[in-house]
């Protein structure tokens, strides 16, 4: 009678990557990496903070959870999704980055993102610059009058807010109405010349989506819901995300 078989190790502890795999469809293909480096060849954040997408994924696969959830590199990522686009195995690295962001205590995330998200939650505009619905209406109407007068060929141009039954609902980066209002006009002119039936919303017009970049799901849901519900209540058919 031989000795009892030796068991190696204990039960594998669930790692950060395992948890993310459970959330993503098809596990985000996170364990399909061929280590070809295409993600890192195409990533604009490769080399920042001594990190790149391939290294990040490999570290996650090796269960280096502490490093993965503490590297500030995740905040350099622009969430452009180029890594998954060029990955032959379609590995969802962007979501892995997103959940790594989420693992940070909110107050320790980048200040700029926290402030911009908090600002968007301040009123119904969801503007990261804190502009109120009234401020927005005032700027748009004032600017429209100015252009109609100065450029008679656009005297019939419109920039409606809360127009019921418009085909398209447009959001707007709040930098323009707050700091560079004239920058809004070229798009109005295009829409006018093309005869498009569109509208802004007084609620949820701010399109920056900083709460998403902050990886604050609840706040992100609030701002997106505000905008979408406004588009729906106006009966718009298509939401045009200009961001």
């Amino acid at each position: 009678m031989g000795e009892a078989a030796i068991k190696l190790g204990g039960k594998k502890e669930s790692t950060f990557m395992d948890k993310v795999k459970e959330i993503l469809p098809d596990g985000g293909n996170l364990n399909l990496c061929l280590t070809c480096g295409a993600c890192s060849s195409g990533c604009p954040a490769t080399g920042l903070e001594g990190m790149d997408p391939r290294k990040f994924l490999r570290m996650a696969a090796l269960g280096l959870d502490e490093e993965i959830t503490s590297t500030p590199w995740v905040w350099h990522c622009t969430m452009c999704q180029r890594c998954i686009y060029v990955c032959p195995m379609k590995i969802d690295i962007p979501r892995l980055v997103y959940y790594a962001r989420q693992s940070w205590p909110r107050e320790e995330r980048p200040k700029g993102l926290i402030n911009s998200c908090d600002m968007a939650l301040r009123n119904d505009s969801c503007s990261a610059m804190g502009a109120s619905p009234d401020d927005f209406s005032f700027v748009v109407e004032d600017l429209l009058d100015e252009y109609r007068e100065a450029q008679p060929e656009f005297k019939d141009m419109d920039a409606p807010i809360d127009k019921e039954g418009a085909e398209f609902f447009l959001n707007q980066n709040s930098r323009e109405p707050v700091t560079e209002p004239d920058e809004m006009v070229p798009l109005w002119k295009i829409l006018h010349s093309a005869g498009i039936n569109w509208t802004y919303g007084s609620k949820g017009w701010g399109g920056e989506n900083y709460c998403m970049f902050l990886a604050d799901d609840e706040a992100w849901k609030n701002t997106v819901a505000m905008s979408i519900n406004q588009a729906k209540s106006l009966g718009c058919k298509t939401y045009l995300n200009t961001e």
Partner: peptide, 28 residues
């Protein structure tokens, strides 16, 4: 070189510039 380049850009004289990840330097 064990790295798959992703971008190919045109240069003068129809030469081609490849961008790829350099794993020893950790940069592109």
């Amino acid at each position: 070189i064990r790295s798959i380049p992703v971008d190919i850009f045109g240069e003068d004289n129809d030469r081609l510039s490849l961008r790829r990840f350099d794993e020893t330097e950790g940069t592109t």
